[in-house]
Design a protein around this nucleic acid. Structure first.
Lengths: 338, 338
DNA sequence: GTGAAAGCGCTAACAT
DNA sequence: ATGTTAGCGCTTTCAC
């Protein structure tokens, strides 16, 4: 004889089966709407389930079935709307595939990022998507333990990990070329922390500067609006000869730089031309008019979704890299006639 | 004799136990770093685990332990940075509690929202946080099936569901009062869709307009930048006498309105004063200078985290509502001297 | 179609 | 401090 459960144990399949007068297995079939259940029993089961307030325990079903139909998505930063664009692309690319998405936020903290990935893996997601992962390839591989993954906005060498990104090197040189042709010669780059693996934009910048025989000038910031603002204020206060143009690692930083200039009464692009990167919504606003390099965030998300679906489906093979061409979006911050 | 697993079955606790020469239970204890394991066995187990590439199956552990230490968080829209602010508040308020967070995005679609909540519940999260839920209280209660929850930015009547919000009615009247005292008499409100449950800002606006004996003027939009822009362009094209001031449902809409005015060569606040709501980062930027009503998003997140932790801890009791006072942030869009 | 029974990988008494 | 043994709630052969 079963004892009365001490804690209000939840309704199980067993309870539903008993109530409906069928076996547990039958309830299971109904729940996954299998075609091989008679209409009569089906409705009986569904009615009992509803009456008892049954809620299937997906932990149990996933454990037993070895399938989760869930993808984990890790984002670097919710404050940067480029990740919202990527998210939209992902859901778009996943539509109709019958997969769920679990989101986590890494906050550029290696510990947090890996913890999130491990958490995904421990919950046996079918695959992991990482947009803006900042850790090492080895750590990632270690955390993934064979779970298929695709990194977005970055190229990374690891087994079973595809990469989907825009050619950041090209973005960097594209920015410099644009500014050079506008007549600029003192072009600075507001970069990110040295330890971050996102170096291609800087390299593209350095490469192009060298090509044009120009002296590069690097300043480091932290990818945020506040950071961009602080670094430019500091620079202006330093008394150093300011550049005539700045290419910022991303749009958030670029907007911060524009704020600093505005607060010092400097005009854009008159006193300084600004080019950002990512082409996020706010920058594109006519109120800001920030020239930027579009990395096609939505498309990246869509391609990543497609890639992970193929990996999950077992289309194995070596790691694949998809690299898109960036697109220069000229606006007022670099060209007043735009 | 065990057959060779057909699919590359993952390494289990059993395997680790065998390899380390201990029992499965001991491995379990080590994994949850229990203090009652001898250092020798502990290291032996950890070494075996590492050697075998063991990854604990949290589906199984959660199923067996009836505990997930995970909270589900649902956001309305990743493109609105107010949700990033709320997210920060939540993680801040959860710090040190040993809880994980799973995020989902509802996209103002009742189906998607409820699906996400059901998914959380089916995975047996300990609690659910909803920031910007747009569905009905009944549907939510049905999906929650008793799982504790707290809704953020909204007040909702349901068992075991707390509410944490800012007084939106007050926000609406605050905006009108501010504009009235600046001398405005034709003050319009750009509202959201009629079917959405976020009506308090409009009601506050209507109430204040009535108090001042002014004629209210409502226009509907969709909470996005693009939507705000479209509605204002349309309005200007209609030839109707434009208001001298507009209170927008949120900052995204307000920014869109400002864009429309700029594109028509109208000045803000000269031709039209604008007040938004949410006090998001971009609006606060000196480049935009949008007057807004701060709803203390970070604080809302923190309070919600606290509330859900209490609920989860079993501090039962009736549903609690915490309502904050909004704060008017005056900037250039309403007051050029700001 | 439907039911019985053997797991899925782990936790939680309990015993030692 | 460590091992034994029931389950957790569901899926999945495999008979009927």
């Amino acid at each position: 004889m079963k004892q009365i459960s001490p804690s209000p144990r939840s309704v199980t399949m067993e309870d539903v089966a008993r109530d409906a007068g069928v076996s547990r297995a039958l309830v299971s079939l109904v729940m996954r709407d299998s075609p091989k259940v008679s209409p009569a029993k089906r409705t009986a089961v569904l009615e009992s389930a509803a009456a008892l307030g049954y809620s299937p325990n997906r932990l149990a079903s996933r454990l037993a079935s070895h399938r989760t139909n869930t993808l984990g998505v890790l984002f670097l930063d919710l404050h940067n709307s480029v990740f919202a664009d990527i998210y939209d692309g992902i859901t778009d690319g996943l539509a109709g595939s019958g997969n769920q998405v679990m989101v986590a936020v890494g906050s550029a903290d290696p510990g947090t990022e890996l913890e999130a990935v491990r958490s995904f893996v421990d919950l046996r997601v079918d695959g992991v998507l990482l947009a803006g992962y900042t850790g090492s390839s080895e750590e990632l591989a270690g955390a993934l333990r064979g779970t298929p993954a695709v990194v977005i906005t970055r190229e990374l060498e690891a087994d079973g990990v595809d990469s989907v990104l825009t050619d950041d090197f090209r973005s960097g040189s594209l920015a410099v070329e644009h500014l050079y042709h506008l007549g600029h010669r003192r072009i600075a780059h507001v970069d990110i922390s040295d330890w971050l693996p996102y170096t291609a934009r800087r390299e593209g910048y350095l490469h192009a500067m060298k090509q044009f025989g120009l002296e590069p000038q690097l300043v480091h910031s932290d990818m945020t609006e506040r950071g961009g603002r602080a670094v430019m204020e500091q620079f202006l206060d330093s008394g150093a000869t300011p550049p005539t143009a700045v290419f910022a690692h991303n749009d958030l930083t670029a907007v911060g730089i524009m704020e600093a200039l505005a607060s010092r009464g400097l005009s854009v692009p008159g006193d300084m031309a600004i080019v950002g990167c990512d082409n996020i919504e706010v920058g594109a606003s006519p109120l800001i008019g920030l020239t930027s390099i579009d990395q096609h965030a939505g498309q990246l998300g869509r391609l990543a979704a497609q890639a992970i679906l193929e990996r999950v489906a077992g289309t194995a093979g070596p790691a694949v890299t998809r690299k898109l061409e960036p697109a220069l979006m000229v606006r007022r911050s670099s060209d007043p006639s735009a």
